[in-house]
Computed example of a mutant assay.
Amino acid sequence: MNIHAPLPVSGPSDAPPPRERLFRGTGERYADDVPLPEPPPWRKARADGTARTSRPYLIGPEQVEVVNAALRLRRPLLVTGNPGTGKSSLAYAVADELGLGPVLVWPVNTRSTLTDALYRYDAIGRLRGDGGRAGTGAAAGAESDATAGVGSYVRLGPLGTALATRHEGRPRLLLIDELDKSDVDLPNDLLHVLEEGEFTIPELARLPESPHGVPVHTEGSHERVTVHRGSVRCADFPLVVMTSNGEREFPPAFLRRCVRLELPDPGPRQLQDIVRAHFAEAGPGALAAQWPAIEVLIENFVARRDLGGLATDQLLHAVHLLRQGIQPDERHLREAVLRELHDRGGR
């Protein structure tokens, strides 16, 4: 196989490089000593290896006040809006600004149940006598009775972990994503847990009472928490952000317990601010050479979004390609990067 390197770049440093194909579909190898182009700033991994990075988040002052009301009341925040308006990203922005640690995420679908979010019990692993205790080493040996050992087969889910743990003395943040995709009964099933901040694990409640409690695993970490009498009760109500694309209505009893936030589609000026914020780490003037083209791109994006539905991150993807010398308005790229979320038909 032949080795090929990227084409040389000439001209001002802030000008887009000439277009090149990284993958050519010919079997030719890309040069081993030439790095691939940088990914978008928001797609770079954290230093600790996690994929989610801190991303700038821009919303209006009225929306900020609603978020703060939910924080002060410690009520679930129900965020609705069109796809791409930043509903899920809001949870990460709140956790990042308030220092609440990694966001606990419960992605909801039609098969989701409340128990899924609270805890999982590995009954088969316990019957086999393996799996749950594997790898616990000295910790397993320190468990002096069978009651404590059952905890090796229990892992709290995202909601259970949000109730049972804190992050450096502060409550956890739980993102319940796309709640409107759930079974019709799930929002009502959530009411008691979100109101009372507690739940029971029947598999542990049936055990003989242990003065030391039962250590169980938690979601997303190696931390273990101790459960007494099978009951998990929060010391501090977690912050709960629930998102909905508005695909269906929720029961009045559920809505009454939420603070509701409707995120509008960002306008042209806000989109310009969002683009600048997401590429800020590239340095001052990083977008100067492409800014006239970016303004046209934003104008076309708004017009097409109003017709068929586009998400803001699609615009950011198009801007990144534009910075790398690729015109996202070319038909085949437009269909891939700026394709409407809802086909209009007749296109």
Rank of each mutant, 00 (worst) to 15 (best):
D14R: 10
R224M: 13
G81M: 08
F250A: 05
V275F: 09
Q63N: 14
I294L: 01
P16V: 11
D14W: 07
G131P: 00
N82A: 14
R29Q: 11
R126H: 02
P35S: 12
E178Q: 10
A289C: 13
L118P: 09
S182R: 03
V108A: 02
L104E: 05
L179E: 03
P107K: 12
W106L: 15
P208H: 14
E247R: 14
P328K: 11
A142K: 12
A286I: 02
F199C: 00
S182N: 02
R128V: 01
A282T: 04
S210A: 13
L297F: 00
R21L: 15
V94H: 00
E223I: 05
V9I: 15
D273V: 00
G213D: 07
D122P: 10
D329E: 15
P328L: 12
H4L: 12
V79G: 06
V225F: 06
Q272E: 14
L77T: 06
G230L: 03
E195N: 12
G101M: 10
A31N: 08
L255N: 04
L7I: 15
L114R: 09
R256V: 00
E223F: 04
A123F: 08
A91L: 06
W42T: 09
R46V: 04
R206N: 08
D177M: 11
P8M: 01
L204I: 13
S89M: 15
L194C: 03
L271A: 03
G135K: 07
A142H: 11
L191H: 09
Y30Q: 07
